[in-house]
Write a protein that binds this DNA or RNA. Structure first.
Ligand SMILES: [Mn+2]
Ligand SMILES: [Mn+2]
Ligand SMILES: [Zn+2]
Ligand SMILES: [Zn+2]
Lengths: 150, 150
DNA sequence: TACATTTTGAGAATGATTCTCAATATTTTC
DNA sequence: GAAAATATTGAGAATCATTCTCAAAATGTA
């Protein structure tokens, strides 16, 4: 059994919830992809092999995975929440290219230290952070520069 | 004419858009409040004096104000986008209490320097950032501690 | 295995946001 | 400054992500 499964099983039992086939499928899908996925994408991934799972159940399961500390809703775009698994991963910063939509991830190690310090000054107990930086990726910046020069 | 109005007027004319009564009302409402407001709240604020403005027009105007650099969609909660005016204000960090929902704002000066540096390392052109920290405000932490002890 | 409890799929419902369109306001032209 | 050209508005319909309802099915427990 994978570590993330152990964690989920523990979370479920601690909350008198049951480990079902569908929940396991969703959990696996979530850890199979390393992207930032929305529920509908997940639904289609799962549906490929298991045409019976329902969209509603995926929606219902996401908060459980969040609560269990397995995934996080770290982005919102295209009017949809996007999730990524966080279990076994360090929190990080997202750089969002305003031109092409590319998402670059960079380390958040220093940031976290900084935030723990800053929040403490305000008697605030730090739990987690979400940092999204907008800008232009290298490719887009060069492309736009060329355009301007012409 | 207020500075933010000048900016809006300039933005509009640069884009062959017209300055209308309704747009002015929305702009004023946005700068009257110093909260993080959702569109519906804005609608009710405006409706008090001007029962004729339409919700649709407010929805239509928000992106214009964003584009003009006057406001920013910096939070999402209660399933709604929340905006704040940013013209004339430094960007800042939001501390969100997971228990009571309170939002504390702290300076983002150092963070911005840090981010400009980090993004540069990745050839990414920094434009803006949105940082939300979740945790517990002082009051809630104390209250919860008491609960646990009992 | 039988019971009590939880979960599920399907489809309906909700609610924020966007779109449509005919009527109106604003800017531009002469 | 009036008419022409263009952009905007309010109202309500339409969209679409997300949540809810409920009867049938699955799961954990004794
Ligand atoms: Mn990520
Ligand atoms: Mn703020
Ligand atoms: Zn790009
Ligand atoms: Zn609090």
């Amino acid at each position: 059994m994978k570590d993330y499964e152990k964690r989920f099983v523990r979370y479920l039992s601690e909350n008198s919830l049951k480990l079902t086939r569908t929940r396991r499928l969703i959990l696996d899908a979530v850890f199979k992809t390393h992207d930032h996925v929305d529920v509908d994408t997940l639904y289609n991934m799962i549906k490929a092999d298991h045409s019976d799972v329902s969209l509603a159940t995926i929606y219902r399961t996401m908060p459980l995975l969040v609560e269990a500390g397995l995934i996080k809703q770290s982005l919102r775009y295209q009017s949809k929440d996007h999730y990524e698994h966080v279990f076994g991963h360090r929190n990080h910063i997202h750089l969002l290219c305003e031109n092409c939509g590319k998402i670059i991830e960079i380390s958040g190690r220093h940031l976290e230290e900084f935030l723990k310090n800053e929040t403490q000054k305000h008697s605030f107990e730090f739990i987690d952070y979400t940092l999204n930086v907008t800008g232009l990726c290298h490719k887009c910046r060069k492309a736009l520069n060329r355009k301007i020069k012409r």
